[in-house]
């Protein structure tokens, strides 16, 4: 992928504040120089009788990639739509770059880019025309727009497809076009709502790299996804939400420390006695232990000597061991631990 947007990073960073007054958001001297890009306080939102957001709080710092995780129906997209002043809400306050966000906050809107969950494009326009149209909503000057469109096309690697219409693009290419339309005007704040749904690993990797380049160029990113590994890969801080509430907030490691779950240990063995399995289950750090005749799987609590103590017990009991795997807890474990394993719609 080209570095057209990231190439502006040295000139543009830190994130501007007064870009709202000009047509090029990431330029100029910041006037609203607090650390907060998005501030949501006590947001309450109902869909009919269903509570969608329950006194929800959110603070996204400037220059970070903030991950918003949650099961289906947890309220992620509702939060984004409230931030964008598309949805009404019953209580709470939302500000972006320290200013209240309303439907007519055009200065703020000029600094925001959105990559929606569904691919929202004109099927009758070509790739280039689509990007140019969305750019025109922010940048009136044709010459400036032409340059930005070229850079956006290059950023998402669609140079060979500029004359294609969206219907002729693969799912991954359409997603990349969706992104280009959202970031073409070089916003200070970009909201990505599950941008990698149904794309292949190569496209996903390209998208994630692009988001990191946006961050490097000074943009703040709010990123929602179901894919834990990609959130863990790119996000500075992560919030897990469910039922319209904040469940946990922190870095990936901080989140892992919040749960009782430690590593998962797998030991290959063919002669584990039932008595030995019972003694393993009785160890204080063991949460769960299962044996299927070939492998012993042990789920542990946090502890520094879990693996050593388990191996000592196996050696003492005369159990022969083959391969040995120890996996630290993943964000997926944290997510399932905090939100439960019940199926969601």
């Amino acid at each position: 992928m080209n570095t057209a947007i990231s190439s502006t990073a040295t000139a543009a960073a830190p994130v501007s504040g007064e870009a709202a007054q000009g047509s090029s958001p990431r330029s100029g001297v910041p006037a609203d120089a607090s650390r907060t890009a998005i501030s949501v306080k006590g947001l309450v939102k109902h869909y009919g009788s269903m509570l969608a957001l329950d006194h929800f709080d959110l603070d996204v710092h400037r220059g970070e990639i903030f991950g918003l995780l949650g099961p289906n129906g947890s309220g992620k997209t509702t939060v984004i739509n409230c931030i964008l002043a598309l949805l009404t809400y019953e209580a709470g306050a939302i500000s972006v770059f320290d200013r209240p966000m309303t439907p007519v906050s055009y200065d703020l809107k000029r600094r925001i880019g959105v990559v929606p969950q569904s691919v929202a494009l004109f099927n009758e326009l070509t790739v280039e025309e689509n990007i140019d149209y969305f750019c025109s909503l922010y940048i009136p000057k044709r010459e400036e727009r032409s340059r930005l469109v070229r850079e956006a096309v290059s950023f998402v690697g669609l140079e060979e497809f500029t004359r294609f219409r969206p219907g002729k693009l693969s799912g991954g290419l359409a997603r990349r076009l969706n992104i280009a339309c959202g970031i073409v005007h070089k916003p200070d704040l970009v909201l990505f709502d599950e941008p990698t749904v149904a794309v292949d690993p190569q496209s996903r990797n390209a998208i994630l790299e692009g988001i990191e380049r946006l961050r490097d160029a000074g943009a703040t990113v709010l990123y929602t996804s179901h894919y834990m590994e990609e959130v863990e890969q790119i996000c500075t801080r992560i919030m897990i939400m469910d039922h319209g509430r904040r469940i946990a907030l922190g870095t990936a490691n901080e989140l892992k420390d919040m749960i009782d779950l430690g590593e998962r240990i797998t030991v290959g063995t063919l002669d584990l006695e039932q008595d030995t399995l019972g003694r393993i289950r009785a160890l204080p750090f063991v949460m769960q232990a299962d044996y299927d005749g070939r492998e012993l799987n042990v789920v542990c609590r946090h502890g520094d000597r879990n693996l050593a103590d388990l191996l000592d017990l196996l050696n003492a009991s005369g159990t022969s061991t083959g391969h040995l795997i120890s996996r630290p807890p993943s964000l997926n474990d944290v997510f399932l631990e905090l939100t439960g394993k019940a199926l969601r719609d």
């Binding site: 739509n81 964008l84 002043a85 598309l86 055009y106 200065d107 809107k109 000029r110 925001i112 959105v114 929606p116 569904s118 691919v119 929202a120 494009l121 004109f122 969305f134 909503l137 922010y138 339309c181």
Partner: peptide
């Protein structure tokens, strides 16, 4: 969805 996207533009 396209309408939603256009609605968040500063126009």
């Amino acid at each position: 969805p396209l309408g939603a996207r256009r609605s968040i533009a500063p126009l």
